[in-house]
């Protein structure tokens, strides 16, 4: 569903991604690991379409369409959704508004009618319970005054309601204690299906104990330098990244 070929991208004139290739098929869970500054967050920003990232070469196909030509909201409506590393606070805008507006925008894009209020509330309650979140969350402003853990849960709650085809999780484990990590991981695992792809970006191996990926990539200096199965994570845990970087340099 996602095909990245030879992707080069610049931020403020510095080349961060230097020929990245990645293919994700439906049903697969991929993890991208790598040292700080390798370009992990740049990749998620480019995929979601954030301003200030300049793609200088390469292409990205999402379900066969040229992703780079799509507007931010169109990417989301097409089913590519990003769980933010730092979820944004939006004062005065209730969570429930955002959820409903987003869901209906997606349905409208598919030519479906707006969801009925009772059906919507049923859906949301169900997902809230799944994320062990209280109903009161719905009526609080988006992420405002949320703890780090609450923000991350809220990101996954949105995924559960909006059901993207490809969920990109940017450092979803950062700032979480072990209980919150479990809840978040359970949420993500419930998203796993034959039709859906998941791309996790993480610095730590810890997350992969809870969400076991099918494929692990190591991103270093703007390129994928190593791809393997879940055992690669253990090796990284034991040996760090340096051996890969050296091997790559030689």
């Amino acid at each position: 569903m996602l095909e990245i070929k030879g992707l080069h991208a610049k931020v403020e004139g510095n080349e961060i991604l230097k020929g990245l290739d990645l293919t994700i098929n439906p049903g697969e869970v991929h993890a991208i690991m790598g040292p700080n500054g390798a370009g992990k967050s740049t990749l998620s920003a480019v995929l979601a379409g954030r301003d200030g990232y300049e793609v200088t070469a390469g292409e990205i196909l999402f379900e066969g369409d040229n992703l780079l030509e799509m507007e931010v909201e169109d990417r989301a409506r097409a089913g590519l959704m990003l769980a933010f590393q730092y979820p944004v606070e939006i004062p005065g805008v209730k969570n429930v508004y955002l959820l409903k507006a987003a869901l209906n925008a997606q349905r409208a894009a598919r030519g479906e009618a707006e969801i009925e209020a009772p059906a919507f509330m049923k859906l949301v309650r169900e997902k809230l319970a799944q994320m062990k979140m209280d109903k009161s969350f719905l009526h609080r402003a988006v992420n405002e005054g949320f703890s780090g853990g609450e923000k991350k849960r809220n990101e996954i709650l949105q995924m559960l309601v909006l059901e993207p085809k490809l969920a990109i999780l940017d450092e979803i484990d950062s700032g979480l204690d072990i209980d919150a990590l479990r809840v978040v991981a359970d949420g993500v695992n419930s998203l796993r299906s034959e039709q859906r792809g998941v791309l996790m970006i993480t610095h730590y191996q810890r997350l992969l104990d809870y969400i076991v990926p099918d494929v692990i990539h190591v991103l270093a200096d703007g390129r994928i330098v190593k791809t393997g199965d879940k055992s690669l994570a253990l090796e990284l845990e034991a040996r760090g990244y340096d051996w890969l970087l050296e091997a790559d340099a030689s």
Binding site: A48, G49, R50, D51, E71, V72, E73, R75, A76, R77, M81, L82, F84, P87, V88, I90, L98, A101, A102, A105, Q106, A109, V142, Q158, L162
Partner: peptide
């Protein structure tokens, strides 16, 4: 950006 990344028009 956050709202639009949820599919909401600008």
């Amino acid at each position: 950006f956050y709202c639009m990344q949820r599919g909401i028009s600008e």
